[in-house]
Design a protein around this nucleic acid. Sequence first.
RNA 1: GGCCCGUUCGUCUAUCGGUUAGGACAUCUGGUUUUCAACCAGGAAAGAGGGGUUCAACUCCCCUACGGGCUGCCA
Length: 441
Amino acid sequence: MTITRFAPSPTGYIHVGNLRTALMNYLIARKAGGTFILRIDDTDPVRSDEKYVDGIKQDLEWLGLQWDKVERQSERLDRYADAAEKLRSIDRFYEAFETPTELDLKRKKQLNMGKPPVYDRAALNLSTEERDALRTERGDGVWRFKLDQERINWKDGILGDISIDAASVSDPVLIRGDGQFLYTIASVVDDTDMGVTNVVRGSDHVTNTATQIQIMKALGMTPPEFAHHSLLTGPQGEALSKRLGTLALRDLREQGIQPMALLSLMARLGSSDPMELRSEMSELIEGFEVSSFGTAPTKFDVADLFPLTANVLQEKPLADVADQIADLGVPADLAEIFWTVTRDNITTLKDLAAWWTLFSEGADPVIDDEDAEFVAQAMAMLPQAPFDDTTWKTWTGAVKEATGRKGKGLFMPLRKALTGQSHGPDMSATMTLLQVVKARA
RNA sequence: GGCCCGUUCGUCUAUCGGUUAGGACAUCUGGUUUUCAACCAGGAAAGAGGGGUUCAACUCCCCUACGGGCUGCCA
């Protein structure tokens, strides 16, 4: 049984980077017929906000990433306490009392001496009396996991063989001075409790993974399969973290990006599988393979989503967008033809409004000087609205007869006079929608 | 500073010592179309730099440069 999870912290809305992680885990679970857990990592009551929990769910629903189960870390604190107790009982857990300032100072000192800034384990040598004295003086300390100082190896689903020397890492703090459990232990306990079999996450967690593996083993747990995907960068290769604020899923939705455009790109970007626009999630599931992802940072450009969105819309039936078209004020009997005509000529659904304005109110004509006389002559021959789907053919036929113009020289000036643009939908269909001809004056 | 990972067409990547360095997206040209899109055909386009090892290096090793991550009482 394959079980995966997406574990966001509800301290903000999710962005494209998070989505990549969520999607990979979702696709793995679905492809294997397994379970996809949405785990809310809300151990920090101060930074967590219920509005983000709702927001995350809305964003996932928008994309159709249906989860099978929701878990919340805030409801599982007793499990973390159990694990902590066990670590104490096997002597792999110790209390330390340095203040953040002191630790900072130690790190700087180590750096100056050319040494790695790793916690010096001073607290390990405290006598019981010293410990009690410090606790009385400073209150509860933090609890650190005592790493075995050996190399930690695992075979990563994307990175391959990874080996990290525990001696180059500080003993991780698992419980803060205020008693709050930290991500490292909560995640370990949850992943094993919940039977998670495959953990896919960003490569910013690689070092964490090494310590988590040791903690799992210390607790007698079996580590899951890990896979760490590369992080996204901006189009220039710059770190994306500073710009993620503008790449929240809800902002993309607000800009009119279509779900399948986003999903198709994110499910393949950075992998060796070709990026193809898919219309069904099932197609993304079927072709998904974590191991085909590369390890180098991946450039992501939001601009790529717009052409993809345009392509998605070209395939959409009226039923999918009927509500939005009705909202524009398009009469029901014109909706079908309106959509058929416009869907090839928009980037996002936001562009529909401009088309409806053009059809219902007419367009400011564009008439080249050398065509002025011709257009005037043609306008005089144009019947009164409403037009139908024969109007264009009949009219241009008559104009051709009268003026001798043909081909592009005939059609283009008329298109520009009627729509104000040199490109756009098929003119026969356009005529049936066009209700006002400003060029006629 | 230390540790981990990385660097192949514009972009995402294939290649696990011998290839005309392949594909996809984007781009360009032609065809088709009243226009645009779509579609069809074709084209241009790449191994960061320097040392090794080898008959042979994009591929293995070392150095340099550059990019990303970690180095938190964040996740």
